[in-house]
Design a protein around this nucleic acid. Structure first.
Length: 733
DNA sequence: TGGGGATTT
């Protein structure tokens, strides 16, 4: 790893290669600033209580800020993947803190990772490298798994965990340095964390100066792939930029010649793989990037069926594939056999496959996008970005020089976008908007690196308002209702958290938690042919639909004493079930804590049909997700969330009308209603064949062929809709 | 009649 620094105005400066020891010093100098060697060591221990008091006082009296000047306390660290920054930088910073504050009992560094696995393995590797003998000095925290202690100095955690910590303590008093790894991936969590940190660095630095306590500063390192840094730099004014020289091997890039270009990228990719297989040395293993399961299985079948000059070991690789089958891709085949891994973008960032020397890149990806015209998420095959193409190519140069064959001409590549759209621009933002008021707490404002699409924001706010979780007449910082405040702490979609709340009032918390935790699992069923699947389902199949079927599966799994044998026999994923058990426990624990806080007792009901009560909780809470079947057999929504609130507002709230008139762009009542789409029940649903005339659904997706599919469906007829409950009212106001 | 990839005190 070698480092060179660049000033703010000179973005194009070429990295200068420095030896390792100098590189570390250079980094420390940048990090510590000029006072690095001469800092006055007066404080014996970290005093967060004093700090918190002063921060609160400062924020009470401070004027609104336009620019949060980082004053050199934020470093943007650019380096290629594989340059070792994720393991080295935390150690360098740790040594810096130890040297700078030798008398301080405890300093702590947080390093955020977008993925659980990365947080776990990096913590383990750094622990090994530092040969730490005291347990817990280097720790990890991911959902359901932490080994964090008070004595922890280096803390690897997932972004989601840090978000929770920010909501609990916006000043992050437990940390001296926060390192944000993989910032270029721009997950929603990254965007929230960066937006919070740029303010926090500013205020902590200000208080540290006022109190003349260097230790009270918060320093931030943002680690990102090489590329455009100017967006980050202008978002963090006064930050420093460092480059790290990569230690990856060169990758030769081969473009498709314009004459052989074709619209059928799939056949082109398959043909190229076969051609290269017969030409290249047999010990050069292949990694092929395609878009989805169906494509991959098709190409795998084709490759296996063809007679080749060399032996070939073909491995599909995608998330829905059971762990056992995924492991094939990581084995090294016997000499004389070529490994060909055919993968989705799971191999782009999440998994690193050993032995790859040749990458074949189709140039396409299946990505989620948000259609605000319909208020739903869709999966679409799209061109990759230039940075994704570079990432894919890089997979060929991890162990030795390699090459990439791009299934598109250079001219096409030049037209690709530089970067993929950040997740915040292509997702439903309901959960984000329930969290957002917490991020306004510090000084009453929050600005994202790139503004949220206002149409997506309106959809999210309408849903939250319909759930009574926000009051949009208030400013963002005061927007949450009492219920919204409580439910914002739940690690599930707001509408599901609300269902859980009403389920509690009706005495079916445990059942609703089981169902919701089952919906949180991905790939519940192991692959099997359709006939087997429908046979196996008989044991769990409930006439009411998917929700009660999930409940039956969960109940029988618990009855089997959480048995893996039972899962295998039932063609259900043991991993998914184990996960569901933990999620369910977490949800029930959270809700019980919530109930303790509001001092309400809840009692299970014993009189009526419990399944109908459960379904009623879902249907009454999310009533805009009811659908009826028309004579052609397709479903359409009975009402939509906009229409419902429209009439409510007119009736209930005169102020609302005035506000809408002031802000026609954002909240216009005259906005055209969502175009009505006709939907089908997704074939994975237990109701796909029965097709009852009235249903509720919990999720809708649009596929490539413009089919709108309804998922997690349940019968919801008049009998259920009109159920009357003698339930316990929970009042929290 | 069909599911890109992550993640949550």
């Amino acid at each position: 790893m070698a480092l060179a620094s660049s000033s703010r105005d000179d973005k194009a400066e070429k990295p200068e290669i420095l030896p390792m020891c100098l590189a570390k010093n250079s980094f420390l100098k940048e990090f510590g600033g000029k006072d690095y060697a001469t800092v006055n060591m007066t404080e014996k221990r970290y005093a967060p209580i004093v700090l918190k008091k002063r921060l609160k006082k400062l924020l009470k009296t401070s004027e609104p800020v336009e620019e949060y000047d980082q004053d050199g306390n934020t470093i943007i660290l650019m380096g290629e993947t594989g340059c070792g920054k994720s393991t080295q930088v935390p150690q360098i910073v740790h040594r810096y803190l130890k040297k700078k504050f030798p008398n301080t009992k405890r300093t702590c560094i947080a390093i955020t990772e977008p993925r659980r696995l990365a947080a776990l393995t990096l913590a383990a590797r750094v622990n090994e490298e530092m040969k730490s003998t005291i347990e817990g000095i280097i720790a990890h925290s991911v959902r359901f798994d932490t080994n964090f202690f008070d004595r922890t100095r280096i803390h690897f955690l997932t972004e989601g965990i840090l978000l929770q910590q920010i909501m609990a303590d916006p000043f992050l008093l437990g940390y001296h340095v926060v390192i944000v790894d993989e910032a270029h991936e721009r997950s929603i969590a990254t965007d929230l964390i960066l937006g919070h940190l740029r303010k926090l660095v500013y205020y902590r630095n200000k208080v540290a100066k006022m109190m003349e306590r260097e230790l009270f500063k918060l320093k931030v390192v943002i680690m990102t792939a090489t590329g455009e840094a100017s967006t980050l730099q202008s978002y963090f004014p006064g930050s420093k930029v460092l480059f790290i020289e990569g230690r990856t091997h060169p990758v030769k890039i081969n473009y498709l010649s314009p004459s052989s270009q074709s619209d059928d990228y799939l056949s082109l990719t398959a043909a190229t793989v076969m051609k290269l297989h017969n030409e290249l040395p047999v010990d050069e293993h292949f990694l092929v990037f395609l878009t989805g399961q169906e494509e991959i299985e098709g190409v795998v079948k084709q490759l296996r069926a063809t007679n080749h000059h060399f032996h070939v070991f073909v491995c599909p690789l995608y998330a829905a594939l059971p762990k056992k089958a995924q492991e094939n891709a990581f084995t090294i085949p016997p000499y004389g056999t070529r490994k060909i891994v055919v993968a989705t973008n799971i191999a782009e960032t999440s998994l690193t496959i050993p032995g790859i020397k040749v990458v074949i890149d189709s140039g396409f990806i299946k990505a989620k996008s948000y259609l605000s015209s319909h208020g739903l998420e869709a999966y679409q095959v799209q061109h990759i970005s230039k940075s994704q193409a570079a990432q894919r190519a890089g997979r060929a140069g991890r162990e030795c020089p390699g090459q990439v064959y791009r299934m598109y001409p250079k001219q096409h590549f030049d037209n690709f976008a530089d970067f993929e759209e950040p997740e915040i621009k292509r997702s439903n933002l309901t959960q984000l908007h329930l969290m957002l008021p917490h991020f306004y707490k510090i000084d009453g404002s929050f600005k994202f690196m790139e503004d949220i699409n206002p149409e997506i924001a309106v959809d999210a706010k309408l849903e939250l308002e319909a759930l009574d979780l926000i009051n949009p007449l208030q400013d963002t910082k005061a927007m949450l209702t009492e219920l919204g405040k409580r439910l914002s702490k739940f690690p599930i979609e707001p509408k599901l958290a609300t269902v859980l709340y009403y389920a509690t009032a009706r005495g079916v918390l445990e059942q609703a938690s089981s169902i919701i935790s089952m919906m949180e699992t991905e790939n519940l069923f192991l692959p099997s042919n359709e006939d087997t699947r429908s046979l196996e389902l008989q044991k769990f199949w409930a006439p009411e639909g998917d929700l009660i079927t999930y409940l039956n599966i969960f109940t029988q799994f618990v009855k089997s004493k959480n048995s893996k044998v039972w899962c295998d026999k039932s063609r259900i994923s043991f991993r998914a079930m184990t996960y569901a058990v933990r999620v369910r426990k977490q949800l029930i624990d959270l809700m019980k804590r919530f109930l303790e806080e509001v001092e309400v007792d809840y009692k299970p009901l014993h009189n009526q049909n419990i399944n109908m009560t459960i379904i009623h909780c879902f249907g009454k809470t999310i009533h805009w997700q009811r659908a009826t079947m028309d004579p052609t057999g397709k479903y359409y929504r009975i009402e939509n969330v906009q229409k419902v609130k429209h009439s409510d507002r007119i009736k209930k709230n005169r102020i609302w009308e005035a506000r809408v008139r002031e802000n026609p762009g954002l909240w216009s009542l005259d906005a055209p209603p969502k175009k009505i789409l006709h939907a089908k029940i997704h074939p994975s649903s237990t109701l796909a064949v029965a097709r009852p005339s009235e249903i509720i659904f919990l999720k809708a997706t649009l596929n490539e062929k413009n089919d709108l599919f309804l998922h997690h469906c349940s019968v919801y007829d008049e009998t259920i809709a009109n159920l009357r409950h003698s339930h316990n009212e929970i009042t929290i106001f």
